[in-house]
Design a protein around this nucleic acid. Structure first.
Lengths: 158, 158
DNA sequence: TTGATGACTGTACCAATTGCTCAGTCTCGC
DNA sequence: GCGAGACTGAGCAATTGGTACAGTCATCAA
């Protein structure tokens, strides 16, 4: 079993109150410290906990504009373009998606003019046919995993 | 100035090797511990560092399917639908985007059948006209902020 | 029934880290 | 010249993380 009831409680605590010590987590969960530590090790080894890097806000870093740029690529150039994307610092993440040779990239920019620059740069990449941009206007649901974890916890309990 | 040269060096360290003590960071940067601590406090207060929660992998949590679901909403129901999205645990994040009453949501699912269930749930929300899904096939550029930080650092130095 | 395996507990130890404070130095702008 | 703000280096008590150990308990196969 990948994650059992105790694991979901651990993950919930981790998400709700990071910056708490392992000792304190153990106290809150009513579990021995060794147990918790073993669980954490296992969760990390299993790839559930992928990293501990603090999250930064591109907006606070002077890049308040967020856009999703679809990139249409000519046949057979998907890998090539995909790799080239890594060289664009404004691209925060990118996926190849269903629908022919399409890529979906998440782009941040200082302003709309900067966004245009980035899109121009993308169009100039060899293998790119055209792009289509959707600018994020408002964050309706901020990135979160807690509801998913709780949902998993609920179905695991049953 | 929001982030100067030292700040970018700090952020780079933070991203490159988390799980290092503040003391060690200070040593690596050749800076007094107090200084570093003050900088970290300031970066956090400024909203640059938004959180310290460890990052989890939905895939390792049994949700390997990632999709971007566009939702078209009838006029005037944007807020309503936007709030309803928070009630769907499979929705990891959501934005309202350019183009009429459109929402873009990031959805994770156990498999394609589960994805279909989620989309069905979304369609059933009052105010939703139709949806369009793009399933992520491969992660071409994994989520990253380091290149952006370095880019900012380069322009700040000049 | 017996024996083994794995998970959890409670305790203990130590080096290192944290949060905090303080006085002294340096640089900048008015 | 002078004050404000930032940085330094030092020190302190309290806590932490890493690790180890023996004992308990439940499960499972022989």
């Amino acid at each position: 079993m990948p994650v059992d009831a105790l694991d979901t409680r651990i993950l919930r605590l981790l998400l709700e109150q990071p910056r708490t010590s392992v000792r304190e987590y153990a106290r809150l969960l009513g579990v021995a410290r060794g147990t918790l530590q073993a669980r954490l090790d296992r969760l990390e080894r299993a790839g559930v906990i992928t990293g501990t890097a603090p999250s930064l806000s591109p907006a606070a870093l002077g890049h308040p504009v967020l856009a999703f740029v679809h990139i249409e690529v000519t046949q057979g150039h998907l890998d090539e373009v995909g790799e080239a994307l890594a060289g664009v610092p404004e691209i925060v993440e990118a996926f190849s998606i269903t629908g022919g040779g399409d890529l979906l990239t998440r782009v941040v920019a200082r302003d709309n003019a900067h966004l245009e620059d980035v899109v121009q740069k993308l169009i100039s990449l060899p293998g790119v046919v055209r792009t289509r941009s959707e600018v994020a206007l408002r964050e309706r649901v901020p990135h979160r995993l807690l509801p998913l974890v709780e949902s998993i916890g609920r179905s695991a309990r049953s």
